[in-house]
Amino acid sequence: MEEQTQRAGECDFPNRTVEEVVDCYADMVYRIALSKMGNRPDAEDIFQEVFLKYMQKDPCFESEEHRKAWLIRVTVNCCKLFWMNPFRRHFAPLEEAPEEAFCEMDQEEQGIYQEVMRLPSNLRVVIELFYYEELSVKEIAKSLSISEANVKMRLSRARQKLKLNSDQWHMD
């Protein structure tokens, strides 16, 4: 606690407790992890790892946006590192079983969820960041370390696959 108070004094932006941060960003981190990993057990592993890193590093942030960007970036990096593990490189799914939908979803939402989960992971994460986290193309490009043109292309492909209504595209 002393350490935290001291660090809070060093930062311009007041530090929040870990509990507050977990409550605030748990859904976001989990959604990104799920969209990158494609299955819940791996997403849960990544979820834990991201918040463990947050506790270990205890970084200083200038704003809430800064904190959010840090968490998105770390989640994406953790997902990349997960597959870089030589042990996991030899993993392959036994069968292409559809990911089970969440119980709160109705019939239609379950269908949408299954469609989203059928997308390749690089398209899924862009959809998640753009439509739910409402990040701009520029912010997504920065978070994923890809070009803006690449983000736009991925969004376009994802929309085509999901058959999203073209009049509802909000690309800035």
């Binding site: 748990a26 989990y30 969440f102 949408i112 439509y131 739910y132 999203l164």
Partner: peptide, 21 residues
């Protein structure tokens, strides 16, 4: 597909409560 529906669907993805605790 409607983007609002997509947003609603994505909004219903939550981590397990026990995991968060």
């Amino acid at each position: 597909m409607d983007t609002d529906k997509l947003r609603n669907t994505l909004g219903k993805i939550h981590p397990d409560r026990a995991l968060v605790e």
